[in-house]
Structure formats: C-alpha cells, structure tokens
Design a protein around this nucleic acid. Structure first.
Lengths: 254, 254
DNA sequence: GCAATAGTGTCTATTAGACAGTATCGC
DNA sequence: GCGATACTGTCTAATAGACACTATTGC
C-alpha cells in the first residue's frame, strides 16, 4: 500500500481525555465524571470526548474543559487566550484494545487549575466530582470523602492519571507552573502548601520563602497583604514572567 | 450526539512520525527521507507511516524505524526488547490543515541512536540521509554536507523536529539518555562530545570527567581501554543502571 | 621532544539545608 | 499572654566552575 493512499488507511476515532488537577484541603485532587453508559457504566472516568472534524487537538481539549468545568484554558502555545487554567498536551494512548468497541486513540491533556467551586457536568451536578489522586490510584480503590468507595477508573484512565500526576510533580520543579494551582494573588505560604500537596512532602517554610523570593521572575509582589491563613499578615504575590526556574526547586529525596 | 456513539465519530487517519537523532562528526543529525509523491514531492520529510489497525503506537514507531534503518528500538516501557536505540513518544500533532488531503493525526516519536552506517530506505539508498539539525532548522534551508540546498521540511515536520531536539537537549540533563548516542562501550571523552554536540557548547573536560564518574549508576567501567581518540589510553565504560541522574548534568547558560 | 587526550588535585564562590530568632496578626 | 504564621539571619557541608598539574599514548 502506498504510504499515503487516502482510501486505504484504517479507521480511527480520536478523542481527548483530560487530567484536571487541583489542590483542595492540602491534597492533590483530580476531576472525574461518572460514566452513564456501557462499557464501564457507573464507573468513574476522566472527562473527555471526540475531537471534531475541523478542530485542533488543543481546541478540543479546551472545549471539553469548558463544558465540564466552565474553566477557560490558557494554552501557552496559542497566542491569545483568556487567563485561567494551564493546559498542555500530556501523551497519546493508542493500545488497540483500550476500548472494547472500536479503535480509539486518545490524546490526553493535563490541566492545572486553582481550587474551584463544585464541578458541573452538563447540568447533572452529581455526575462529576473531585477525588484525591491518592484514592483514585490506590490499588483497591479506597474511599472518597463521602465514604463512597472509588472503584478503579474506567479504561486505561488510571495509567493516564498516573502519567499526568508524574508530569505535574516534575514540572513544578523546574517551571513556575505551581502558580497555576493558586488564585491570581497568593502568599508564599499558599504556594508552599501547593508544593507540599503535589509532592506529598513537608518543606521548611523558612528555606522555601528564601528560595522562591530569591528566584528571579518567579514572583512579583502585588502590594497587598492578607491574613486569610491566620497569623502575621502575609505579602501577596502574582506569578512573575518567568516560565523556567533557574535554579530549579529541589524535590526532597524519598 | 452521544459522547461514544461508535457510528458518529469523524474519520481520522493516524500516523507515526520519527525524529531519529544521532551524533555524527561532532554535530547533532536527524534522519530525513525524500518524498516521492505529492504533496511536497521531492522535499525532505521525517520518516513515518500509517498505524495499522491492530498495532500499538509504540509498535508502529518501532516497525517504521526498523524499515528505515534496520535499528531495533528499545522501548523502556515494554518489557522485552532487544537493546538498541532509545525510543519514546514525543507529542501528537493534529492541526486540521497539517495535511492538505485529509485529516491526519500524527503521533511523533523520538529515537536516539548511536552513529550508524548509511541509512537505507526500502532499497533506495538515495532517498534517505542524515542531515545536521542546524541545516534542517535554519530558516532559509541552508546547505547539506554535499552542498545540496536543504529546502524546508515537508508538512509541519520542522516544528516536530524542533520539539524533538528540545526534548533531547533537556532529557540528557537529568537522565542517562546521552549514552543512547554512544556505542555499547565508550569513553568519558566520547560521552562529553555527545553533550557538546547536542547542546552546542564546549564543556571543561576535567570537570565533566569528575562529574560523570562521580554520579552513582551513570557509568560502569567495562575493564578495557582504547586509544581510538588518540592520546593517552582512555578507560572504557558501559551505561550503568541509573536512568535518572541525581544530581543532574548542568547545561551552561547561554 | 611534541602534540594530543586522559585523569587528579586544589581553590573559591555559591548554595541547600538546618535552625535561631524576631515580627505581627487573632483570640 | 498564647498560638499561629511570616519573615530574616547565621552557620555548615556540599558542589559547580576555574584551572594547575601529571600520565600515557602516537608521531
């Protein structure tokens, strides 16, 4: 067969799946939706859907994100987009048997978002929720915050979620992306709690403060202060222009 | 439309494209093939082809690699594969207009290989060659080593190649992947020349030697020595078991 | 000897990590 | 006052980078 014979290619469906991460109550959480149909009916899955015929992959991911959360994604590769959550391509999953019905290639995307109000999913408020990554990835399922048992995720979504979490854990080391988990204005302590939740470690508040305020372009003071965390008023910052951190934040050893 | 109605998805073609990098004569080079048909007939392009209906994405990439180079890819994610070149998924490109004939989503893969004999491409030795990354990515095309002008790469392959080069440049900082550019046994000086070619910088041989031999698990002595680089005989090493380098190699500032 | 590469030692400026101590809020 | 968090300063061990020096080959 000719390498580009348009009439001779096998038919594929192409979807986007979203790993939407946020930090809630000092825990790294992901957005999951309940499947209403077979296969895996009733199980939790990552949000996602088909790429339309005239739609770019990043556009499809941003559309699905808006449909599920109302978030406006900020794709660093596309020039003009309203500020909001960070969106980037994660990886593509194409095992021939990953969907029992047909050949589906899924282009997974990673979204990092600040703590949000309750998710919505097409008007059915009960069909989407935040769950801790720990619960979703524990082998037997574990228990959600309402005491509801989390069965394993549908399809290969546990692997996709694991890859997304690993990407987030490593990217906040050498980029300023941890600020994507924070509201527009935030304190050094709030940023530290993001690192602690994503990495699952405790960091020295004093050395952390010295490190982030000493990294050029990471944070810019916004002028105000807040006492929303209690204690002495803390200076408020915005994300600076730097995207790459040099020197990087160092993740403590195991 | 139901989010998973099997009869209602738009038809996509899915291909794999390969960014095959090697170091030749102190320069980072990529494998390109000449297109025999429209569009972009006669232009250079990255090797690649359709994913078969029952084939995983990584398997398709390994098959294309073997067809183009005879290399056996070593995918770190798959358990048993003959040692050879390193292969990993790079990114997926799905702009609706990236191929003028139809909707093609391409899952690009990155291959890092030691210096190889001349490439082959389906028996037609003239239709595949190594070109320096510098020539391929220079805006106007530049000149290849035979003095032949390199026109810009077909499709969006210049962008894919640029992304692959950037991935390679950053991955050799914090992983042991630079050894994938070396033969099974190599000297510290040969490894240093890999870093210098990929990063395009000059490194201090003495500090480099101290750094790589002091990083646990990076290199293991094989016992032999060689004088193939001239000068005092150099100890031969193999790649050690470590995949992540801690501390990382530091790329000098611009 | 001379050129080339390999390998070791030494000094210095920088920094990560540990931790003392002070500042400023709510209660 | 007390508890909490924010911030600044200090010490030490480790290290990146610069560079002097020696070792061992081919010619």
């Amino acid at each position: 067969m000719s390498p580009y014979d348009p009439s001779a290619f096998p038919p594929f469906a192409v979807t986007v799946d979203l790993v939407v991460l946020t930090v809630r109550r000092h825990a790294l959480c992901a957005l999951v939706v309940r499947r209403g149909e077979q296969p895996f009916q009733g199980r939790w899955a990552l949000p996602g859907g088909f790429v339309r015929g005239d739609e770019d992959l990043a556009a499809a991911a941003a559309r699905e994100l808006a449909e599920e959360t109302g978030l406006c994604a900020h794709d660093p590769d596309s020039p003009a987009s309203t500020p909001g959550a960070h969106l980037e391509q994660l990886a593509t999953y194409g095992d021939p048997r990953r969907d029992p019905r047909m050949r589906v290639v899924s282009v997974a995307h990673l979204v990092l978002a600040p703590d949000l109000p309750a998710p919505r999913a097409g008007g059915d408020a009960n069909s989407a929720r935040w769950a801790t990554v720990e619960d979703l990835l524990s082998q037997e399922g574990g228990f959600g915050r309402e005491g509801e048992q989390s069965t394993p995720l549908a399809f290969d979504h546990a692997r996709i979620l694991g890859d997304g979490v690993e990407r987030a854990r490593s990217k906040i080391e050498y980029s300023s992306l941890a600020t994507a988990f924070c509201p527009p204005e935030f304190t050094v302590g709030e940023l530290r709690r993001v690192y602690e939740a994503v990495w699952g470690v405790a960091l020295d508040p004093r050395n952390f403060h010295r490190k982030v305020t000493g990294t050029p372009g990471f944070l810019v003071p916004s002028g105000g202060t807040t006492t929303r965390q209690g204690g002495r008023p803390a200076q408020l910052f915005r994300a600076g222009g730097a995207t790459v951190l040099n020197p990087p934040m160092l993740r403590p050893e195991v």
